[in-house]
């Protein structure tokens, strides 16, 4: 069975993929659907959802279109999630690979460094980083990347350590390939599947982190994100609960989708684990 077929037999994963594709489509089409941007004050504030055909989800505290905010917010959540995950991978994968492949002092040093970052409570570190750099899209993404790479390094290290004892690596050594070559072209490609699974979960975690920072007032004020919408609406949660409810659902669905996909990928990559399942 191919990977895709195995993935497709997992109902949850397919649902997750469909949701995610919808979110991506919405994010890409945002400038077409709402060319005026999410900040325009279009109607009286606190318009209740489903009461005005032009503004299906109502308006927020300043009379801005909630639907426009959600659509534009999708771009930010996905962007922050993706970019910070890529950055975290760029730190974590090389570090973990070197540690696992060379062992000895390299391993010791890299692992001390990783442990160091895992000892600092990561959300607290993210808060400090964003506060120092001042909240912009870039600083938020960077802060999330800095606090989320250690698990990647650990995972990659473990994978590389087990892979480097395999026959095909020994064969490559005998063939006279350089260490770098072996690591990059023989070992890492075989470690890619757990990394992909982890990355899909990291995107989800990054989206949650971004929204938590926004909730604490550490969001980029020029960018409409879901976390910002919840943070801005939480003071009116009693009189207009839907304002924080809808972006909350958006986050929940996206994070859920990413998790379902992650699980589906995991099952697809490791078919032997699937036996017990229907």
């Amino acid at each position: 069975m191919t990977l895709w077929k195995r993935f497709a037999t997992n109902r949850g994963a397919v649902i997750g993929l469909i949701i995610l594709l919808c979110v991506i489509a919405i994010a890409l089409l945002a400038p077409v659907i709402y060319p005026g941007g999410p900040w325009k004050m279009v109607q009286r504030p606190f318009l209740v959802p489903f009461t005005n055909g032009d503004l299906p989800l109502g308006t927020d505290t300043l009379g801005r279109d909630v639907a426009a905010g959600l659509v534009h917010g999708a771009r930010v959540s996905l962007l922050v999630g993706l970019v910070s995950t890529v950055m975290a991978l760029l730190i974590g994968v090389p570090l973990g690979a070197l540690a696992g492949f060379y062992g000895g002092y390299v391993d010791e040093g890299a692992m001390r460094f990783t442990e160091f970052f895992q000892t600092i409570p990561n959300f607290a570190l993210a808060i400090v980083l964003v506060a120092i750099l001042e909240p912009t899209l870039g600083s938020i993404t960077l802060a999330i990347a800095i606090v989320s790479w250690p698990p990647v390094a650990r995972l990659v290290r473990a994978e590389v350590m087990s892979l480097k004892r395999r026959e095909f690596v020994e064969a490559a050594h005998l063939a006279g390939l350089s260490n770098t070559r072996i690591l990059v072209s023989e070992v890492l490609p075989n470690a890619i599947s757990p990394i992909i699974v982890m990355a899909s979960l990291m995107v989800a975690t990054a989206i949650l982190l971004e929204s938590s920072l926004s909730f604490l007032g550490l969001g980029d004020p020029n960018i409409m994100s879901w976390g910002y919408m919840i943070g801005a609406a939480r003071t009116v949660i009693r009189s207009a609960w839907w304002l924080s409810f809808m972006p909350g659902v958006a986050i929940l669905l996206t994070v859920l989708a990413l998790n379902l996909i992650g699980e589906g990928l995991n099952d697809a990559f490791n078919p032997h684990l699937k036996k017990g399942r229907t």
């Binding site: 989800a204 949650l208 929204s211 938590s212 909730f215 976390g227 919840i230 939480r234 949660i237 009693r238 609960w241 924080s244 909350g248 986050i251 929940l252 669905l253 994070v255 859920l256 998790n259 379902l260």
Partner: peptide, 21 residues
Amino acid sequence: LLFYATPLYWAALMAVLVFSV
């Protein structure tokens, strides 16, 4: 999965609303 995907602060706010208020 739902618990895992729910923003922590949001769950907290909702819990206060329901169980306290």
